[in-house]
């Protein structure tokens, strides 16, 4: 006899699927925490799926992969992934991840967080982590708004866009995040939308395997707040809108990939270059200066 689980969205009791019908990604998900907090047709779930696919594709050992989030809707990703996962403070996902990655060099640490978390309150940490070429993969979910607090304007909100704190439209110049990432030293920079599933999955896989600071911006609909205030229809409508207005331009100059209100979105892989990571550069430099007196930091599983 099959057990039953409750469908919290409509309070119907539905049969629990047999073992063979479990979702193939269930091993990577803390399904005991479901239902999740995201709104219906929000892009974050799709991106979570792409992250798991990208991780599987990368061939990395999930036990050696950790995820850090900040605060906000995207900040909840860490809580649903069955990986070592940390939900830090607002904006501080990158320095927390820096400590985690430096503390155990065997780990591949990803940061999955929102545009406000990473580029507003965490902006200083973002530019310095990129400058150091810290071995981190950053997935920045950009929905152009602070969604969890009710749809306020942020540093990525396009000029003209309506938000709860720009009721007459936004007039601040927004960030061009790929340009910011590249100019600060990121070795891998890409942008996709939440509906470019296959390409996003490939990008996540590539980024996870890339030593150094990799950055992927994912344009994602916020149906409840941003889309509604800006007449982009349902989540699916806006996902389709972003997808259809996207123009793939691999290798595009990041200085030219600004996003204007309801205009084309240039996506693609913009930067993919080689540069020693923070730790590689540090170890090489100190070895040169100190010779045999230099003892590299090997992490908690090697002494101490």
């Amino acid at each position: 006899m099959s057990e039953t689980i409750t469908d919290y969205t409509n309070k119907l009791t539905i049969p629990k699927p047999e073992e063979n019908f479990r979702h193939p990604m269930e091993a990577y998900i803390r399904s005991e925490r479901f239902p999740h907090i995201w709104c219906s047709s929000c892009g974050i779930g799709t991106i979570l799926t792409a992250y798991i696919s990208g991780l599987q594709k990368s061939g990395l050992d999930p036990e050696k992969v950790a995820v850090v989030s900040g605060i906000g809707c995207s900040g909840r990703v860490a809580g649903y992934l069955r990986l070592d996962s940390f939900h830090s403070t607002h904006g501080r996902a990158l320095p927390f991840a820096t400590g985690l990655a430096l503390g155990n060099p065997e780990l591949k640490v990803s940061v999955i967080s929102g545009d406000g978390d990473i580029s507003a309150i965490g902006g200083n940490h973002f530019i310095h982590s990129a400058r150091r070429n810290m071995n981190l993969t950053i997935i920045c979910i950009n929905n152009f708004t602070y969604a969890m607090t009710g749809g306020q304007a942020g540093p990525t909100t396009p000029i003209e866009a309506n938000s709860s704190t720009t009721p007459y439209g936004s007039y601040e110049y927004p960030f061009n995040l790929p340009f910011l990432a590249e100019s600060c030293g990121a070795v891998y920079v890409a942008r996709w939308t939440a509906l470019h599933i296959r390409r996003l999955t490939n990008a996540i896989s590539e980024a996870l395997l890339k030593p150094g600071f990799s950055f992927i911006e994912v344009i994602s609909p916020c149906p409840t707040l941003y889309s509604r205030r800006n007449r982009l229809g349902t989540g699916l409508d806006s996902m389709k809108f972003y997808h259809d207005t996207a123009i793939i331009q691999h290798g595009a100059e990041t200085r030219e990939v600004d996003i204007e209100y309801q205009q084309k979105i240039i996506v693609g892989k913009f930067v993919d270059k080689e540069k020693p990571t923070f730790t590689e550069a540090r170890d090489k430099f100190l070895k040169k200066k100190l010779g045999d007196r230099f003892v590299p930091y090997r992490g908690p599983n090697h002494g101490h």
Binding site: P95, F96, T98, G99, L100, L102, L107, N124, H125, H128
Partner: peptide
């Protein structure tokens, strides 16, 4: 492993990260 961070917010966050890494 010593790292000079960009500010004290980052320093304290990195400390917690490193502890969960085992240091």
């Amino acid at each position: 492993m010593f790292i000079q961070m960009e500010d004290e917010l980052a320093s304290m966050a990195a400390v917690s990260g490193a502890v969960w890494a085992g240091a």
